[in-house]
Design a binder for these strands. Structure first.
Lengths: 242, 242
DNA sequence: TACACCCTCACCAGAATTGGGGAGTTGGAA
DNA sequence: TTCCAACTCCCCAATTCTGGTGAGGGTGTA
């Protein structure tokens, strides 16, 4: 029935990804894929809401170390650009203006990063954000052909890499997200869309005193220091929909 | 090179999706897919951050109307469950306890919704959230075989449906996201992690007066009514990373 | 050279939020 | 039944936030 049932190699890779019991295994899989596609580099990089980072890929370790040391995460136009969009994006279409971005690019080039790149952003609840990137050194038209041909492979691979990485994420369980009660959810939601406490209380037809109890209890459950923090956490954890 | 280059039918559907110039075309494509996979129903449903909803699919219009009228969006365990996870999920694995959920299920059954279902959540920045769902009436083992076989097709289709829907979304352009200055980003970020204004000013080594200017200007740029709203918007739009 | 934007600082008064208390009802779960 | 969690209401005082206006120096672009 399925479109894809006749592609044993994709099946194999996905099966290997799904069976992986340790994050280290992803490294060998991604190296295999790099060779299969005959590109310079292939990288899966994931950032969770609490700042945890994990990555596997074929970048020069020196470049990875420098990237972390320099805090390039907040400069890299690939990360910034992908953070704000959903679709796979060619590096050429990103915003490389700005002093910091250009300095970053020359530094990357000096460390052997290819002039072409294609990155697939992946998002999940709890502010999860991951990138699956392919990079290469070649001419524009050759790169266009490559991405056109392999886009769908890469989307699927990005998805399964992320699935496996999330499954194996070590610091996942401790975040025992305490569920909010319906009233607390309503309260947080209305606060997140700009209502003042008085307006929220009015909207929910309860007294402002009662409302404060909800804010307090939600704040406690979310481990937040103040109302703004509580709303931010509730959003980041996907407990409210704004 | 690519794993998938030999699957012309998937190419065709994706090409049709990418060429679509109007949301109505998605409807005929999804009907075609429903027939191709020989399932009861197939639905793409998307909710944007401003509450806009869009859907196309093969559900009975009466059920869709009832769903909207009853506000089932906030009751439906499929939506609630998928909102908090990233991976495709079988309906059987969702939490159907709770009075509201059970009432919803019997109502859905009465409207001819299948007993089996498989939903793929899709997420983007700006709180975008979409669901691609396949539903059918059959036995558990038959359904397990179906999902096992077609999971990857469905992931790709979900992706391309979402891509097209976002591209065609009418209320998308007006959201001219005004970029925040570095200081404004720092301010919003620190507020989002629970710092008080005094703490933020201290951390940034500026006076609290200055800090207020940033908050005010960020609030203005974000079109926010207060600080909490500004932080929520900055987060939802991916302008700060918490 | 303008112009625009960013960063920095200041004043003031009113409005809103916050941190502690305590207490009663309801409905579902053990 | 008993217990717990959720929902509702109330007081008070200190702290914090908000809204408006003004002003100077730096940097980069047109």
């Amino acid at each position: 029935m399925g479109f894809l049932e006749r592609v044993p190699q994709l099946d194999d890779v996905i099966a290997r990804l799904e069976c992986a019991a340790r994050l280290e295994e992803l490294q060998s899989i991604i190296e295999w894929l790099r060779d299969y596609y005959a590109v310079d580099d292939m990288v899966y990089h994931w950032v969770s809401s609490n700042g945890t980072q994990y990555g596997c890929g074929t970048y020069d370790p020196k470049w990875v170390a420098r990237y972390l040391e320099k805090g390039y995460l907040r400069v890299d136009p690939v990360v910034i650009g992908c953070y704000q969009r959903f679709h796979p994006v060619d590096w050429k279409r990103l915003d490389w203006s700005g002093k910091a971005a250009r300095a970053f690019m020359t530094d990357a080039m000096a460390h052997g990063i290819g002039n072409q790149g294609y990155s697939i952003p992946i998002r999940g609840p709890n502010g999860q954000f991951a990138l699956f990137t392919v990079s290469h050194t070649c001419a524009d038209d050759e790169w266009a052909r490559f991405t056109e041909l392999n886009r769908r492979d890469l989307i699927l691979l990005a998805h399964y890499f992320n699935q496996t990485a999330l499954k194996l994420e070590p610091g996942r369980k401790p975040e025992a997200t305490q569920p909010l009660s319906p009233r607390e959810v309503e309260t947080m939601t209305l606060l997140a869309v700009g209502y003042s406490r008085a307006q929220v209380a009015d909207t929910l037809s309860i007294s402002e005193h009662t409302l404060r109890v909800y804010i307090e209890s939600a704040r406690f459950k979310l481990g937040a220091l103040n109302t703004t923090h509580a709303v931010a956490r509730a959003m980041a954890r996907g407990q409210i929909v704004v």
